[in-house]
């Protein structure tokens, strides 16, 4: 960005930066990308056109039959896709809004605020396995804390981990980790100039109006980032529904109740219960395309409401 007063010197010849050096240094990533991202995806694409079952050495090319089956003849899979979209539509807005709410709550000078923030943030660093185990204990119908508390006010025991409640439990468990978003939002809040809030308050805006018309536009890039990463994470949720439903020693996709039987659980089931590697691969590719679609749509929509500081007068 600096303006050079002298004409661009030719003293820095490009030969000083031989391309081969760059490619030598970047080789670990390039090779890894080709071998561990491109190749598996291509492999899955190839398998998705076959009836491979994971073991038999002979399998046939079946064309797009797996894809056709997925969309026309397999209501279970489409239902799982629908549950995934529902889960995403519920969890992402709630966790971004919740993160913003918590951030506003702790963005003030009060005693032990560091400790309070740490407690809110802590759940987001607990490994997913431990989160699931903890919540299975809290939601346990007999010895669980939630039913214990509800029992105090006379509400009879609820089986939180099976339908029709499993979906709400999954949402609750997911929201427990929203402290990660809180920290990011909190930092963004602290970058909002205090004069802006003061000016708005002097103009007569109440607390909610300041948040709506000053704070949110100012931190919109950070909110947008959380929505993008949140949507991608929510669409591929798998371990939580799998482990929350676990009853025996093995995590079984077939044990997951219908309302939390999300798309990835279905994929897992096709691969590791039904041994339909070809069909599972087709499901993975459809998922891959869905993610790309979401990314593009979010990117498009962001132009309308995300305000980057560098260009304040967009539209």
């Amino acid at each position: 960005m600096t303006v050079l007063s002298t004409p661009p010197a030719k003293a820095r010849p490009w030969r000083r930066y031989p391309a081969s050096t760059f490619y030598l240094f970047a080789a670990p990533w390039i090779l890894g990308f080709l071998a561990l991202t491109v190749l598996p995806l291509a492999w899955a694409l190839m398998i998705s056109l076959t009836n491979f079952d994971g073991m038999a050495p002979t399998y046939r090319f079946v064309g797009f039959r797996n894809y056709v089956e997925l969309f026309t003849d397999y209501p279970q899979a489409l239902r799982s896709l629908w549950q995934t979209l529902l889960y995403t539509a519920v969890v992402v807005p709630l966790s971004v809004a919740g993160g913003l709410g918590l951030a506003i709550l702790v963005n003030r000078r009060i005693r032990a605020v560091g400790l309070i923030r740490a407690v809110f943030f802590l759940p987001s660093v607990v490994p997913v396995v431990a989160t699931a185990i903890m919540w299975r204990l809290v939601l346990n119908p007999d010895a669980g804390m939630l039913n214990g508390i509800l029992g105090l006010v006379g509400i009879p025991s609820v089986s939180w981990l099976i339908d029709p409640y499993a979906f709400y439990s999954l949402v609750m468990v997911s929201l427990w980790g929203l402290g990660g978003g809180m920290v990011i939002t909190l930092a963004a809040l602290q970058d909002v100039p205090a004069e802006l809030n003061e000016a708005a308050t002097l103009d007569g805006a109440n607390g909610w109006q300041v948040i709506r018309n000053v704070t949110i536009p100012m931190i919109s890039p950070v909110l947008y980032f959380q929505i993008v990463t949140g949507v991608i994470a929510a669409l591929q949720v798998l371990v939580q529904p799998l482990l929350l439903a676990q009853t025996s020693s093995i995590a079984m996709a077939s044990a997951v109740p219908p309302s939390t039987h999300v798309y990835m659980v279905q994929v897992y089931q096709e691969f590791f219960t039904n041994n339909r590697f070809g069909f599972g691969s087709a499901m993975l590719w459809v998922f891959f395309l869905v993610i790309m679609l979401f990314t593009v749509v979010l990117q498009r929509s962001s132009r309308r409401w995300v305000h980057y500081q560098a260009s304040s007068n967009e539209d």
């Binding site: 995806l41 899955a44 990835m264």
Partner: peptide, 10 residues
């Protein structure tokens, strides 16, 4: 942006 799981199973 590539979901980790879409590459893990393949």
């Amino acid at each position: 942006m590539i979901p980790q799981i879409a590459t893990l199973i393949p």
